[in-house]
Nucleic acid binder design. Structure first.
Length: 489
RNA sequence: CGGGGCGUAGCGCAGCCCGGUAGCGCAUCUGCUUUGGGAGCAGAGGGUCGCAGGUUCAAAUCCUGUCGCCCCGACCA
């Protein structure tokens, strides 16, 4: 009778798909690698958007919107950038369809003079535009964000974690000095860290990427990395210090206060619907989705129970009053009084959909002035007084929020290991998975070798490293501090 | 791009080997009884069996081709 969710221990990948389906977050579309984000999933994204957007505004950014299509010539202006994205671009070549005997076909006569790229990211078109916006240091900084969809022609896709089209935000900023741009990149990384930890309840490691993992066209890529329950790491957000690479490529100069003409300094930063995948894999269990209260579309669901019309009348009134009162207290609450479903069905459904807190009320509770509270994260049930719920429930929600974070942080700690030599490294990777801190000589060759031999990559060089110099586990050369390895999504 | 799987009712699937009236569960609709962890009974509606050829008296089933999606590996957020 229970919903068919594969157990995590049995098949983690299938479990993930089952949760996404049963929680009604998204479904596969007829188009390979693309998904339909269903209302439950989109509501979650909207809550993330709202919070992030506030945080961007708080740090001085404004939203704008740039085109979906990018002239092919733009993309080739920055050498590293085009190299990084060339292999995964959707290209628009024609503008018209015609009817033929076999149905519909591309009209050969509608071939575009200049082909258009569906944006994989917007640096190029934005920097082409910024050139016109910037003349003087007085025009700087430019602090812009855009909410958009992007397309990357991926070989292998997974709902939310990697889809060919995904939703994201991309911030693009222009600055007069290197220091200012670097500070911006750090600032936004911190915004991401705080969003991940304080709202998603997902503990993250902050760090800087190695050259091979760096964003194409960036000087430095900073990231937040999160550890999933199956021991694989997820890159959850990135913030790039772009140096003057795009300013050079698009000839974006400004006249500084000293009268000299200079190249502009840049950053870009983004998080995507991938965060939803990360959140699922951070908190959910074999019963389905578990959501942090701060982002849950519905924080509290009230399920009424009755056997006859009299009970229905009294329970409905009791429930409705509670509903109104919680709503006025600013809680995202739903009174699920649908008559076509029985209470047991609703319990199970809200559980699989991850609603953080359930309130059940029946005739007994009405008589005793009580309600039954059930926490989604712990599955604990408790009979409590109706009195004072308006104050108590926000507290419980915050407790759930912080308990989720603590549990995930504790799990991540357990999944973080230290390897003193390569053998131990490989053994840990096979037996435990998770993060492995190990010494590395900072050469691309060693990094490559480890990746080829173990499939583990350097997730990042932690921004706040342990201060214990050592020797690279491969080459034996000096390493100022251990770096973070893991297999990843 | 390799390897595997799948396409049959809204969803999940069986049927295919061995050709012979297209089925099951869930969902939907009607009625009655139910409601503190996914209700029961009775009845009803719903299908170009992915597509195109072929074999045959007869094809979901056999043959050939083709399209698509999913999963696992090589690239990436």
């Amino acid at each position: 009778m229970a919903k068919k969710i594969t157990e995590r221990s049995n098949d983690y990948s299938q479990w993930y798909l089952d949760v996404v389906r049963e929680a009604q977050l998204a479904s596969h579309s007829p188009v390979r690698g693309c998904m339909v984000i269903k209302p439950n999933g989109y509501a979650l994204w909207e809550n993330m958007q709202r919070q992030l957007d506030d945080m961007f505004k708080e740090t001085g950014h404004q939203n704008a919107y740039f085109p979906l299509f990018i002239p092919k010539s733009f993309l080739s202006k920055e050498a590293q950038h085009v190299e990084g994205f060339a292999k995964e671009c959707a290209v628009v070549t024609h503008s018209r369809l015609i009817n033929t005997e076999d149905g519909i076909a591309v009209d050969p006569s509608s071939k575009l003079e200049e082909e258009l790229i569906v944006r994989p990211t917007s640096e190029t078109i934005i920097w082409d535009t910024y050139r016109d916006w910037i003349q003087s240091y007085r025009d700087l900084p430019i602090l812009i964000n855009q909410w958009a969809n992007v397309v990357r022609w991926e070989m292998r896709t997974r709902l939310f974690l990697r889809t060919m089209e995904f939703l994201w935000q991309e911030g693009h900023t222009a600055h007069a000095t290197e220091q200012e741009a670097r500070e911006e990149a750090y600032r936004m990384l911190e915004v991401y860290r705080s969003f991940a930890e304080d709202y998603m309840a997902m503990p993250v490691e902050t760090g800087v990427k190695t050259e091979s993992e760096r964003f194409a066209g960036a000087v430095d890529t900073y990231c937040i990395e999160a550890m999933m329950q199956d021991g694989k790491a997820l890159q959850a957000g990135t913030s790039h210090f772009l140096g003057q690479n795009f300013a050079k490529a698009f000839d974006v100069r400004f006249q500084d206060s000293d009268g000299k003409e200079k190249l502009v300094w840049a950053t870009s930063w983004g998080v995507s619907t991938r965060l939803i995948g990360g959140m699922i894999m951070t908190h959910s269990d074999d019963n389905g989705l578990v959501l942090p209260p701060r982002l849950a579309p519905t924080q509290v669901v009230i399920v009424p129970i009755w056997r006859n019309d009299d009970e229905k009348a009294s329970v409905s009134e009791y429930g409705n009053t509670l509903f109104q009162s919680l709503k006025e207290a600013g809680i995202r609450v739903r009174f699920d009084d649908r008559d076509q479903y029985k209470p047991g069905w609703k319990f199970a459904q809200h559980e699989v959909e991850g609603t953080p807190l359930r309130i059940a009320i029946g005739p007994r509770d009405v008589a005793n002035n009580k309600v039954e509270l059930a926490r989604r994260d712990t599955l604990n049930k408790e009979l409590v007084d109706r009195e004072g719920l308006e104050q108590r429930i926000p507290e419980i929600l915050e407790t759930i929020q912080s308990d989720l974070f603590k549990a995930a942080a504790e799990r991540t700690r357990r999944q973080t290991h230290t390897a003193s030599d390569y053998n131990e490294f490989k053994n840990l990777l096979e037996s435990e998975g998770g993060y492995i801190l190990a010494h590395w000589d900072r050469t691309a060759e060693t990094e490559e070798q480890i990746k080829n031999e173990t499939k583990a990559t350097i997730r990042c060089l932690p921004l706040k490293p342990e201060k214990n110099p050592g020797k690279c586990m491969i080459s034996g050369k000096e390493s100022p501090y251990p770096v973070l390895f893991a297999r990843s999504y």
